[in-house]
């Protein structure tokens, strides 16, 4: 067996993940934020590995 098999499994796994997720929680492009956060006038709200959840640790 070569790396072609494992690499294909990785890419197919990602494709399945996106497809299952999109069917459960479809994205809505009409609710999309401005293209850049810089200059958008809004605070970032994305999840990040360094961030504690809202209200925790305070």
């Amino acid at each position: 067996m070569t790396r072609l098999v494992t690499a294909t499994i990785a890419v197919l796994g990602i494709a399945v993940l996106i497809a299952l997720d999109a069917s459960a929680t479809p994205p809505n492009p009409y609710k999309a934020p401005p293209l850049l956060a810089l200059g958008s006038g809004t605070a970032p709200s994305g999840g990040f590995c360094g961030a504690l959840p809202d209200g925790a640790g305070k």
Binding site: L17, I18, D21, A22, T25, P26, P27, A32, S45, G46, G47, F48, C49, P53, D54, G55, A56
Partner: peptide, 18 residues
Amino acid sequence: SAPGSLDRLKNSILTDYT
């Protein structure tokens, strides 16, 4: 169960930056 996490769980991974 924090509000931010719940919000992200309800939204598509195509809207999560990481």
